[in-house]
């Protein structure tokens, strides 16, 4: 077996008195799609933010490829170049057009020249199925289009992993599919993906593995077949959560 791309061991994280992540351990292999589900406040976002050092961790370790991600943040920007992140609220840079959003980091961080960056942006906009929106600003795009630009922006840094934090939670129902389709296509092309979502259909069809988190712990870590069929193999808490969201 190959070494995992990301290896998280006994990760703990508190915000003041609030213990948000408790002894979280998780391995993610290259090309894998891992879906993280769990009730609000269970620590899903915090886990993703710890992985790319947007939050400092208290104890435990996170390893990316062969190197340990240190708890001090001096090298954080170097690590983040290899991890793409997509946010619930898109967070497109409001003063830039779609293509400028995509070009900014390759130009300023990787030193790519403008023409090359422009080509990258055009290719990526085509990849997320909005080739004609290059010169539009965020407020001129629908939520689904904004989120696809945000995905393209992250991809422009050629990351080895994509972290998605509830990428469709802020979207109207009719736009959810277009975003999930892009995430699925990327995953099928071999992009290692960690996706926090409440979309169970997506989890069932796309995930190689599903993680269920509750109160800062990983309660369940199983392939989708086990997850959606195997009543007796699951923790009672997982069954209760699935009951709640599937029969609602």
């Amino acid at each position: 077996m190959t070494t995992p791309l990301i290896r998280i061991a006994n990760l703990n994280k508190s915000f003041g008195p609030l213990h948000v992540l408790r002894d979280v351990s998780l391995d993610v292999t290259a090309r894998e799609a891992v879906v993280i589900i769990g009730p609000s406040g269970s620590g899903k976002s915090t886990l993703l933010r710890c992985i790319n050092l947007l939050e400092p961790i208290d104890s435990g370790s996170i390893q990316f490829e062969t190197s340990k991600i240190s708890a001090d943040s001096r090298g954080a920007h170097l690590l983040r170049r290899q991890l793409g992140m997509v946010f619930q609220n898109f967070e497109l840079f409001l003063h830039l057009t779609a293509s400028e959003n995509i070009m900014l980091a390759p130009m300023k961080v990787l030193g790519m020249d403008r023409d090359a960056a422009r080509t990258v942006a055009e290719d990526l906009l085509a990849k997320v199925h909005i080739p004609d929106k290059a010169d539009f600003y965020a407020h001129e795009l629908s939520g689904g289009q904004q989120q696809r630009v945000a995905i393209a922006r992250a991809l422009a840094m050629r990351p080895k992993v994509m972290l998605y934090d509830e990428p469709t939670s802020a979207l109207d129902p009719e736009m959810i599919k277009e975003v999930l389709d892009v995430i699925r296509e990327l995953s099928q092309e071999g992009m290692t993906s960690l996706v926090v979502t409440h979309e169970m259909g997506f989890a069932r069809n796309v995930a190689d593995r599903i993680i269920f988190m509750d109160e800062g712990r990983i309660i369940e870590n199983a392939p989708p077949e086990t997850f959606f069929n195997g009543g007796s193999d699951l923790q009672p808490r997982t069954v209760r959560f699935l009951d709640q969201i599937l029969h609602h």
Partner: peptide
């Protein structure tokens, strides 16, 4: 917004 800065950091910007 804070989210704009976070998005920049997440892209590997200093």
């Amino acid at each position: 917004g804070r989210g704009q800065r976070t998005a920049g950091r997440a892209l590997g910007m200093r």
